[in-house]
Amino acid sequence: MADTTDPRAAHPDEFEGNTQHSQPGLTHQMSPQPDHGEKTYRGSGQLEGRCALISGGDSGIGRAVAIAYAREGADVALIHLPEEERDAIATAELVADAGRRAITIAGDVQDEDFCRDAVAQTVDTFGGLDILVLNAAYQQDRDGIETISTAEWDRVMRTNLYSMLWLTSAARPHLHAGASIITTTSIQAFDPSPGLIDYAMTKAAQVAFTKALAQDLGEAGIRVNAVAPGPIWTPLIPATDWPADKLAEFGQDTPLGRAGQPAELAPAYVYLASDAASYTSGAILPVTGGKPL
């Protein structure tokens, strides 16, 4: 019998003492540190010569995807908030260590002009764009619908939804047959938590966006898909303002009994961007630890 890893015990299942008091969460303040595949991901040339732009590319899922894409042969542009510069530089260094070009683009995807400039900077630097990963997101724990301010509502909608429109519309003229757009939605789109009502709404909208856009762009040979993560240990989580006891048990309600790590998401993004997924479009790929969509 082959020597295989028990998925229930592959990564930590407790996260005590991790509360961060504001978004964005920062990687260096987390314990245990997330696994982005730094020591484990092995590429095989599946994305050789391609150029990718990842929003929220500095940390968490975005960092894991950047590492995997670089080791598969792609150049990578990383959109990040100015406060996340330390994380972004660390991710860019990992891309460079893989022998690929990396650029970091600091700004807020709530701003339309910034989104359009980020696409332009990517194309100017790399000479084109083949993969667009719409990964930036914002969430906070809500204590009832009456507690959500209009400013907070706007921040969630502009970060999670408006930015997708602006980035995709700016990227569209540069995308060619064989290009790929990948959205990070969530299990929250299908099994929403009341404390994340506004975030869950945006994730459901991202599913509709993905399916509709796949139909729209299919005739141009551009594929559009989404990954739906379950509970994943990223800086977004300790900065969500959950009670300490809830945070400590994060992900333990999955069939596999633990939260996932960013490294466990990256292969899904590689598959969807690669020629192996040439007949996959409009799909929502769950990586949820066994939780059904």
Rank of each mutant, 00 (worst) to 15 (best):
D154H: 07
Y162Q: 09
H28P: 06
M30H: 12
L161R: 02
E249T: 13
D154Q: 00
R142Y: 12
Q261E: 15
F250G: 05
A228F: 00
P173K: 00
T168P: 02
S59F: 09
G62C: 05
A276R: 13
A179T: 04
D58F: 05
G195K: 00
L196F: 10
L161E: 03
S281T: 15
P34S: 02
A137H: 07
A66C: 10
E84T: 05
L132M: 10
T125K: 09
R42I: 14
L272G: 01
S149H: 05
C115W: 10
A66W: 08
H11D: 15
Q20L: 12
D75H: 11
D130I: 08
G221A: 12
G251N: 07
V207N: 01
L217H: 00
A10V: 07
G144M: 11
P32K: 13
A263Y: 08
A177P: 15
S274K: 03
P292M: 14
L132Q: 07
R116N: 08
W153H: 11
V287H: 06
V207L: 00
P229G: 11
A170K: 00
T91L: 07
Q33F: 11
A208C: 13
L217I: 00
D130N: 14
K246G: 03
D143K: 14
T183C: 08
E38N: 04
A2N: 14
T159L: 09
I131N: 11
E152V: 08
T27W: 04
D241V: 02
A205P: 02
L272A: 04
T40L: 13
H28G: 05
I103T: 06
G260L: 10
R142I: 14
A118Y: 03
E84D: 10
D143M: 09
D141V: 15
P194K: 09
G282K: 00
P235L: 09
A10C: 09
G282E: 09
A283S: 14
A277M: 10
F190P: 01
D111A: 12
Q46L: 15
Y41N: 03
A177S: 15
D108Q: 10
S169W: 00
G178V: 15
L94P: 07
T210S: 02
V76H: 08
G289F: 03
G221M: 13
G127T: 10
I105Q: 06
G43N: 06
T280G: 10
T254P: 12
H80R: 06
L167P: 04
V227N: 00
I89L: 13
Q121F: 01
T147L: 03
E152A: 05
G260N: 01
P286A: 09
F190W: 12
L167M: 12
E249H: 12
T150W: 02
A220P: 03
D124A: 14
C51H: 14
G178T: 13
V109G: 05
E112K: 15
A96G: 12
P267F: 05
L272N: 00
D6P: 04
A171I: 04
A220G: 05
P229V: 11
A88L: 09
L53D: 05
M157E: 03
N225R: 07
E84P: 02
H176L: 14
